[in-house]
């Protein structure tokens, strides 16, 4: 009896390891896409959030329009549009074009996260900074942003996991990330459950780890508030 059951289990185990090894190669690509898109979205989002809050009437309207438009469309659609704009104007690989496009999509969401954080730091802190002779730029750099960025970590953590998962969209451009490799495995092995299950597991581990790391960052940078006595 045992001899008849053991081989299939062993077989399944070996297959799982092989699946993980094959898909894990896509994990590097997924991480690379995310590590391009997220910081790019952060830089654009931060610049645009500052323009939105401190840039005056015209810039505020422009930023509002940008944010509304970008967040009003499915990311996959934007990805295609941006991909064709980017790859039409400069010669870029699908990896770079896709990552940049994802970063631009994310920038609109990060703009809103950072704008909210800056607004909740409040105008009074700016006033206090100006009152000791700081320029607006210095006040932003030394007083507003250090507080706003701390406040932004929890919602930003949420956006980071969204970008991590949305990086699977570059699959549509032919980039061999986790999902595409799972798809290939599923087709060649006829084991869709196993292939996609493995992909799901890897995504879960990535998102979970990223969130824990950012929780840790939030705790490390928390401003002490309880009376020390």
């Amino acid at each position: 009896m045992a001899a008849a059951i053991l081989p299939p289990i062993l077989w399944a185990l070996i297959m799982l390891i092989e699946f993980i090894r094959y898909i894990a190669a896509g994990t590097v690509t997924t991480l690379a896409v995310t590590l391009v898109a997220l910081p790019l979205g952060l830089v654009i989002g931060l610049a645009f959030a500052l323009a939105h809050v401190y840039g005056g009437k015209v810039l505020t309207q422009v930023m509002r329009l940008y944010s509304t438009l970008m967040r009003g469309m499915p990311p996959i659609l934007l990805l295609f549009i941006l991909y064709f704009i980017i790859s039409g104007s400069i010669n870029l690989s699908p990896f770079w074009a896709g990552s940049i496009a994802l970063g631009v999509v994310s920038s609109a969401y990060q703009l809103e996260i950072l704008r909210g954080a800056i607004l909740s730091v409040g105008g009074d802190q700016m006033m206090a900074a100006r009152a000791i002779g700081m320029s607006r730029l210095k006040a932003i750099r030394y007083v507003i942003l250090p507080q706003a960025l701390r406040l932004a970590i929890p919602p930003w953590s949420n956006e980071a996991s969204i970008v991590l998962k949305d990086s699977s969209l570059v699959y549509a451009l032919g980039v061999a990330e986790i999902l595409r490799r799972a798809q290939q495995l599923s087709a060649t092995t006829q084991q869709p459950f196993m292939a996609f299950g493995t992909a799901a597991l890897i995504y879960f581990i990535l998102v979970f780890t990223a969130n824990r790391l950012l929780d840790y960052l939030a705790r490390r940078t928390q401003i002490p508030a309880n009376p020390l006595g």
Binding site: D124, A128, Q147
Partner: peptide, 19 residues
């Protein structure tokens, strides 16, 4: 900014830099 350096201001709600 230079003028403001030479005029100190204290607010009703303190407005210390919280961080």
């Amino acid at each position: 900014d230079e003028c403001r350096q030479r005029i100190g201001m204290v607010f009703q709600n303190f407005l210390l830099f919280n961080h």
